[in-house]
Amino acid sequence: MRNVPYTGGEKESLKVSLDRHRDVVLWKLNGLDEERARRPMTPSGTSLLGLTKHLAAVEYNWFCETFGRETEPLPFDDDDPEADLRVEPDETTAGIVAFYERARAASDKVIDELDLDSRGTAWHGATVSLRWVLIHMVEETARHAGHMDILRELVDGATGDHDGA
């Protein structure tokens, strides 16, 4: 796991911070079978795999759609605000992890190609900078990685944010 550089540039530091949390998301699924990965662990139905699906969708949305890049179909539904968090019966851990990895690669391409001051239009119509999107996604991913830490502990007692934690 890379550490955020103590004296790195702004873009590099934000990207490494995001990558650290992204890696935790994937690590939280390591070693789980399908049932445990998709098991709802809260009364609202939150699962490790559902959070991974949500994070993939919001990565595509914030980095790609905001800056006019293509995405694959995303699981958002105006009539069902939980659609992007729900794991459908035909979805698998491997499929959702692959979705997350594709979203991450597409997002990384945007990050690499644009300056921090580049502007795009968010889904709600506001103009945002790449800097703002990076900060937002560090927050979003860290928040859900923390949720995943608690869920994983409830599933099988595993804790920490990386191997050897």
Rank of each mutant, 00 (worst) to 15 (best):
M1W: 08
K11F: 03
L14F: 03
V16N: 06
L18A: 01
R20G: 09
H21N: 13
H21Q: 14
V24H: 08
K28F: 03
L29M: 12
N30V: 10
G31F: 12
D33T: 07
D33P: 06
R39Y: 07
M41K: 01
T42M: 12
G45P: 08
T46A: 13
T46Q: 06
T52N: 03
A56H: 05
E65A: 11
G68Q: 04
R69K: 14
E72I: 11
L74Y: 04
D77N: 15
D78K: 08
D79Y: 08
P81V: 07
E82P: 00
D84H: 10
E88Q: 15
T93P: 08
V97I: 15
A98Y: 07
D108L: 09
D108Q: 14
D108T: 07
V110N: 00
D117W: 04
R119V: 14
G120S: 09
G120T: 05
T121S: 09
A126H: 07
T127W: 04
L130N: 02
L130A: 07
R131V: 09
R131G: 03
V133Y: 02
L134H: 05
L134K: 00
H136W: 11
E139V: 05
T141A: 01
T141V: 10
A142S: 14
R143V: 12
H147M: 11
R152C: 06
R152F: 04
L154R: 14
A158T: 15
T159I: 12
A165Q: 06
